[in-house]
Design a protein around this nucleic acid. Sequence first.
DNA 1: TTGTACGCGTTATCAG
DNA 2: CTGATAACGCGTACAA
Lengths: 340, 340
Amino acid sequence: MKSEKISRNTAARAPTLEDVARVSGLSSMTVSRALNTPQRVRPDTVARVMEAVRATGYIPNMLAGGLASKRSKLIAVAVPQINNSMFADTIQAISDELSARGYHMLLCVAGYTHESETEIVAAILSRRPDGVVLTGIHHSPELKKTLLNANIPVVEIWDLTPTPLDMLVGFSHEKIGDAIGQFLLTKGLSRIGMIWTEDRRAAQRKQGMLDRLRQQGQPRIDEVVIPLPATLSLGRQSAQKLFSLKREFDVLVCSSDTLAQGAIMEAEYHGLRVPDDLAVIGFGDLDFAADNKPAITTVRVDRWQIGKEAATLLADKLAGENIDTPIRDIGFSLVERESA
Amino acid sequence: MKSEKISRNTAARAPTLEDVARVSGLSSMTVSRALNTPQRVRPDTVARVMEAVRATGYIPNMLAGGLASKRSKLIAVAVPQINNSMFADTIQAISDELSARGYHMLLCVAGYTHESETEIVAAILSRRPDGVVLTGIHHSPELKKTLLNANIPVVEIWDLTPTPLDMLVGFSHEKIGDAIGQFLLTKGLSRIGMIWTEDRRAAQRKQGMLDRLRQQGQPRIDEVVIPLPATLSLGRQSAQKLFSLKREFDVLVCSSDTLAQGAIMEAEYHGLRVPDDLAVIGFGDLDFAADNKPAITTVRVDRWQIGKEAATLLADKLAGENIDTPIRDIGFSLVERESA
DNA sequence: TTGTACGCGTTATCAG
DNA sequence: CTGATAACGCGTACAA
């Protein structure tokens, strides 16, 4: 018995609530309360507890706490990619807002496929997060079932649908495509080159654009499809491919500002003046778009706001507040600058 | 008693190991083994378990598992910022490697101050992560004590020191500064403008550069200091400020490629040809650097590799492997391209 | 190969 | 306001 104690001590077992209780001469339950709901404990008792916490170097064990209380104070966030300028601000905003609300963020890369997302989310749920943020609205049936079954708040982001799993913060990619199409029509830009990434949301924007353009007859479009993530290099290469077609272009429409920046660079390299000889349109209003030379005409979406609202929705709902508008369309704006 | 059971059922309580055991007609312990160490269970028993798992929709509870086993399968990662191109690739690499090794990533924004990092890490430890990744090597004494006390593997990244807390993957900022200084000397670029962010690692690079330059006499340097994160816009503005000094510059040295890109843009806007009239140097070799026009002369560091090695070190150590080289200097290379 | 007993560290609940 | 007791769901250690 005695040797056991000694070995335990030498193993430097992390102090527990029990240890703090012993040192402070209180029960572990009182210590727990002093830490979590100090207003329900006499101030001087709280002080005694705090003193003992310092003395022991106690650090709460949220695994145990979460198990007992069924609240993990964890929010799981699934994104297709982390090193993608499009999502980085959103993730940062989620993280900031969550930590202000006392939550931690479990960040998972779900990729762009149904399969991986489904597996990832199943794995995620084993952490018993209090809430989940999912990128996009297209999920496998199993995913939906699993998530509904888990019975925790979910926010889908970066897209729009009248029928979200639970809550949603995003915008309509179709409408953005439509707006771009309208813009092209208005400007009389009919010989179109597209530099487009493969993901589903980009595809929706493309569809919206085509739908609009086809109202005025069949548009002439040449397209280069590229894998994610979009880079300046891919933008240049793709523009190069388009130019090598030896066809005249009025405009290059790109699925991200990064690609647009590359396309502009390549155009100028080929002696084309932007926008006089060739217009270029991007998407995202990334931080360089406004200051690029020429400044990039693009579609602005408030990536930061998406994250902030998503986190706020979750935290509010978990705080028991009533969510009157679980669907938040944060909209977008076509920002006409120099490049088109 | 009976009503309790019913209420529990209607409350749709998540199925537990016990439930799976009941359905499969086995003990919960066997189910646990079938799930975690299937090789120690008869194949047909495993099959029965899997069947029951499907039937019940069981999802393991890692809070309970972690509490019992003292292994959370969680790695906490603290970075100053998420939406910072410098760290994004590293984070992505950590995430990828960790998930391949069966770990999840708790991502925390620690900011650039000691205080916040210390608090963050204390909060982190309450999740009982199996390991921690910290950005940088300068930590508060309390942080070190807390971390050492937690007795878990730690990897510090993005910097170099002979005395890490535990393990380390990074490179020497001083040496990079030295290399840049040497480059300037070799090229005869003596009228220097600096566009520099405020963070500590950038300061180290600056110091290294100055030390080298001073070996050849007192260099003439004008500097614009900017807050993080670095943006193209800040690069342009800073260059503008420098130009407004009405002094002649041979070179603009920037603490990141993003700033360099902006500086180049602003220089060209002022009718200066890069590098003929003015050289520009960046840092990071971000994905646009090589394809910028002119291509940016910069210092390449393998941000991806940092993340991959950091995660591997942790996972290896946690797997009980012996780590012979806990300090990994991944080095850097000065990439001379068009801008300088 | 499978099962039993117990403990992990905390919180909910109810009693004082 | 404080304390005793019983979960929470799982894995360790040992027994069968």
